[in-house]
């Protein structure tokens, strides 16, 4: 009895989690102009609206620019920092760890407001660079975490071996360490891109209409006029999250295989 009740309860909760996302799909293909179910008929008009409208296109382009720049910066900075943190127990390491964790702990709204106040004082507000810097700061801690996790399974003797055979440190890192920790690095990079691509609160504070990202444009659209184009934009963002989720799962599987193969050797 309890078992059946738990089962039913669990499926209701799981349905609650996915149903709203699924409901968006038919709405975005509606041939009507009001967002209601069941839809009167199906058409691609709202996608057409999305792909022919400069505001949506510019926003999408900005999102990809900021997301890619954030991904590159966060991955570079996060991977080097994680490698440094993993290498030795240097003095001040605990403080450094606390400082690097801060952007994950401070409420996003406080981060956003502070960055707005400070960035406007130095002319970084309303620029894509300002947004890239902000997104890099909130995304990098996650890169550090994933890379640190994969470094913990890495045998430092391999690096020592490469160095003792005369490989320059950078080459040794690229040829020996990087292939082993690549799944961690890739997972971090994907997460950094997704963080930036989905981020809205900071974008609300430090971007003007010229720098609107896709979420920022959606937020503006929701506040002005609720058109089904927003449902189409939402579906596009859901599909993108799907792609990222599958890529990161594939990367994780590959990483597990790598670790398993090493354990067998």
């Amino acid at each position: 009895m309890t078992r059946i009740a738990t089962k039913v309860f669990a499926w209701i909760v799981l349905a609650f989690l996915v149903a709203p996302l699924l409901a968006i799909f038919p709405l975005s293909f509606s041939s009507g102009t009001i967002l209601t179910l069941p839809v009167p008929g199906y058409s691609l008009q709202w996608y057409e609206e999305f792909f022919l409208n400069d505001r949506w296109l510019d926003a999408t382009r900005n999102s990809f620019i900021v997301g890619t720049a954030t991904m590159v910066l966060a991955t570079l900075l996060g991977t080097t920092a994680a490698y440094g943190l993993n290498m030795s127990n240097f003095r001040g390491k605990q403080i450094v760890l606390v400082l690097l964790s801060m952007p994950m702990v401070v409420p996003l709204i406080v981060t956003a407001a502070s960055m707005f106040l400070a960035f406007s004082a130095v002319g970084l507000a309303n620029t894509l660079w300002g947004l890239v810097i902000a997104h890099t700061i909130i995304a990098t801690p996650y890169v550090v975490i994933t890379v640190l996790a994969s470094l913990q399974t890495f045998d430092p003797n391999l690096m020592r071996g490469a160095l003792s055979l005369g490989a320059p440190p950078v080459t040794a890192f690229r040829e020996v360490v990087l292939p082993m920790i690549l799944p961690g690095v890739a997972a971090g990079a994907i997460f950094a891109f997704a963080t930036s691509f989905d981020e809205l609160v900071i974008a609300i504070f430090i971007t003007g209409p010229g720098e609107f990202t896709l979420p920022r444009q959606m937020f503006a659209g929701l506040r002005e006029f609720l058109s089904p184009t927003i449902a189409a934009a939402a579906v596009i963002m859901i599909l993108l999250s799907f792609v990222l989720l599958f890529v990161s799962e594939a990367v994780r599987r590959r990483g597990e295989k790598l670790v398993a193969r090493r354990a067998n050797q």
Partner: peptide, 16 residues
């Protein structure tokens, strides 16, 4: 899947 979908998209779904 919802976890990976942005907060804004999920809020938008409820908004609609």
């Amino acid at each position: 899947v919802p976890f990976w979908t942005s907060i804004l998209v999920r809020t938008t779904a409820w908004f609609i």
